[in-house]
Design a binder for these strands. Structure first.
Lengths: 339, 339
DNA sequence: TTCGCCGGTTGAGACGATTCAAAAGAATCT
DNA sequence: AGATTCTTTTGAATCGTCTCAACCGGCGAA
């Protein structure tokens, strides 16, 4: 209703609008007396600066967009918290958007953010080679890909998913498993494909003795994992894998639920390893082994790269930062009795 | 870099800026031929409408801010998803902000949102009677309090926490528990106080036979629950409560971890009930009994109230919507042997 | 006295889109 | 042909803030 503007403040304080603006932006160049008068007027009127007008005039904004694949997955929440922590130190606001694995939603969010002229966008893209990327960058919005391979058009931060898959695979092989299953999602998701490939490498390294299968759910969710778990539980015991590597912890939790529902014991009947090491993994029915990623660091680094690019666009060279995952062994992949 | 504006489009299409604007906003009033020319120019230049300028001119924005207490708590994520789902249907954008239980952060986020002139703000306030509320509303930003009592200044949506506490309490009493503990957080948080009060009511209704204690953690987090759990585990068996009602599921999960770490069995040695019924509750080491709240519905309703207020500010009457929680009994509060 | 300087202050453009009264064109009717 | 509608298009004003060249008054130096 009663939104005051800089002009009303100026009138009340008996100064020009330029002076009010100065008080707001460079108070040190205004004489203490006037400054005081202006502050009083601001307080009396309940004036709140219109950031929209300011932004229009100065051309750059202090907010960055972060578009994640799935807010329901605590992994992304942690990435977001890392990003926000660093952004906060540079008083920059992070707005979190959820594409929920839907390319349409992803596109709409990106359009919105571009229209708002945000300072930059961090995104965990759904597809490995996002069709919108080139144009978006060409039109001038800095982009940092998170948890995704670089394309040379922008910076990126990622974790070596292939290595993560290998760690999990080597661990299972070493524990004596000879029938291993990979529980994944849509193969278009690069991370999943890489984790699978890493697992395959480790299995291959064991010689021909180990059999590897894969099963796919429509999404990397608890429900997806549960669905695959149901299918596995329905197999005759002899045909069942003895270990499952899930593409992420959400799936692993779902898978675990399905095992419990069918009275199968973990890890005795079937071992499980997840991915991400979200906080809930350790609190699961059977504490989950998982491949840990530096979640907050991923977010922090992404913001760091973005701020660097924004600060000196001409000097900036795009970089791709890759972190190493590590394996956290818990009860869900404890030693096999018969190993 | 190369951000084009409406004027450049107008030049290329050989029309006035007014016409370009019309093509963008009311294409039906523009003749098909010109419309086509304008679209071509837009595409050729890679023009993206500047939402900031548009917003400045038309005065109202299509985004609402949602400030939550703790994004790491899936409860709030679900509320946010509910809000976003409905907002989406009215092509409105929701920006999610995390106060993380810190009044300073909460204040900064609110200031930011107000400066951005968002359409309205949904907030789960930290304090029961937020000091900023009155002024914020007076200056003209519609606010809906989520999961918090109404003050008459704005709409609110909440769940009857007292009833939730009663349900949990009655259940525990009925199962034969005679030494019950409430594991809560800072008492300034209204929700926690209400759940506690509800529990107390149920205990009182049982006559003098039941003893009720309370323990407090600095925050309603997994770590907070674990800390209380450690304290309880350290008590001599005879002094230990036989059941614990945790202020939320995060705490309950932490508490459960502490029990496991000390070899105490749930529910045999100690029963646990949580609050919120987040998805992870069912997947816990011992599936958690919990008081379920209609999470998505809470978010949807909040957006609904806000949109209603924005649509007809004069006709609008503030309302407070209150939902009923219900109890979900799982293994963590299974019948006592000696009950 | 004049000049230059300096800390403060002013006010007239931007910024990019929307809006709307009015002009221009096209079509219809006498 | 002229008058009357109806449809399109135009262009100037506007939203609220920032920026920057210009201005002002006072002071010290010449």
């Amino acid at each position: 209703m009663a939104t005051r503007n800089i002009k009303e403040v100026a009138q009340l304080a008996r100064v020009s609008v330029g002076t009010v603006s100065n008080v707001l932006n460079r108070p040190e160049i205004v004489s203490p007396a006037t400054r005081e008068r202006v502050f009083e007027a601001i307080k009396k009127l309940g004036f709140v600066r219109n950031e929209v007008a300011r932004h229009l005039r100065v051309g750059r904004s202090r907010t960055v967009g972060l578009v994640v694949l799935d807010v329901a997955n605590p992994f992304f929440v942690d990435v977001a918290q890392g990003a926000e922590a660093l952004a906060d130190e540079h008083d920059t606001m992070v707005v979190l958007c959820n594409s929920a694995g839907d390319p349409g939603r992803e596109r709409r969010h990106l359009d919105q953010l571009e229209q708002q002229r945000v300072m930059g966008i961090l995104v965990t893209p759904i597809e490995a080679e996002p069709p919108w990327l080139e144009e978006l960058v060409a039109r001038g919005t800095p982009v940092v890909l998170v948890d995704s391979p670089a394309t040379g058009l922008q910076c990126s931060v990622a974790v070596d998913d292939r290595l993560g898959g290998q760690l999990a695979g080597a661990h299972l092989v070493e524990r004596g498993h000879r029938r291993i299953m990979f529980a994944g999602g849509p193969p278009s998701v690069k991370q999943v494909a890489d984790r699978h490939a890493g697992l395959a490498t480790a299995v291959a390294a064991a010689g021909g003795a180990v059999e590897l299968r894969a099963s796919t759910a429509p999404a990397l969710t608890v429900a997806g994992g549960r669905a695959i778990g149901e299918r596995v539980a329905a197999l005759p015991p002899g045909a069942r894998p003895t270990a499952v590597f899930c593409a992420n912890d959400m799936m692993a939790l779902g898978f675990l639920q399905a095992m419990a529902a069918h009275g199968l014991r973990v890890p005795e009947d079937l071992a499980i390893i997840g991915y991400d090491d979200i906080d809930f993994a350790a609190a699961a029915a059977v504490p989950l082994s998982s491949v840990r990623q530096p979640r907050e660091l991923l977010g922090r680094t992404a913001i760091d790269l973005l701020l660097e690019e924004v600060a000196e666009p001409e000097r900036h060279r795009h970089r791709q930062v890759i972190f190493q995952p590590d394996l956290v062994v818990r009860e869900s992949s404890a030693p096999r009795r018969d190993g």
